[in-house]
Design a protein around this nucleic acid. Structure first.
Length: 111
DNA sequence: GGTGTGACAATGG
DNA sequence: GCCATTGCCACAC
C-alpha cells in the first residue's frame, strides 16, 4: 500500500523525467542517486515497466555507462530511441551518444 | 515465501 | 586494452 510512490520504480520514473532535454543519464548514476548504486539493472527494468505507467517517460535519455543505447530495442522500434535523441539535438552514431561524456547528466552532481 | 529475472556496472584474466 | 565472468538489488510470478 502506498508503496507506489515510495517504490524504487516511482523514483526512477521521477528522476528520468527530471533529465533536462539535450542531456543523457546513465542507469548507474540514477541508481546511485536513489541510494542503490548497485541496482543499476533495476533502473532499466523500471523503465521497462514505464509503458504501464500511462505517462511518457524520456527513457531514451537513459543509456548505459558506455553511452550506448542498450534499450533501444525496447522502444518498440530500434529507430525510435535514436530518433528521439536526435530530436533533443543529441547526436547518435552507431547507437552511441556522441560526446556522451559532456552530455552526461548526473543527478547527484547537477542537483 | 522462494525463485528468477533484468534496458548494468565493476572486476579479473 | 579488450573479452569473459560475477555481483547485485528490487520487483514479478
Amino acid at each position: 500500500m502506498m508503496s507506489d510512490e515510495n517504490g524504487f520504480f516511482e523514483k526512477v520514473y521521477r528522476v528520468t523525467c527530471m533529465i533536462p532535454p539535450g542531456r543523457v543519464s546513465t542507469y548507474g548514476a540514477i541508481a546511485r542517486f536513489l541510494g542503490s548504486s548497485r541496482s543499476a539493472r533495476m533502473v532499466g527494468w523500471a523503465l521497462n515497466n514505464c509503458h504501464s505507467m500511462g505517462e511518457f517517460i524520456p527513457a531514451h535519455r537513459v543509456v548505459n555507462r558506455n553511452g550506448i543505447l542498450t534499450g533501444k530495442h525496447h522502444f518498440g522500434t530500434p529507430n525510435a530511441m535514436k530518433q528521439l535523441l536526435e530530436n533533443e539535438n543529441i547526436k547518435v552514431v552507431d547507437d552511441r551518444v556522441v560526446d556522451f561524456r559532456k552530455l552526461l547528466w548526473d543527478p547527484c552532481r547537477e542537483l
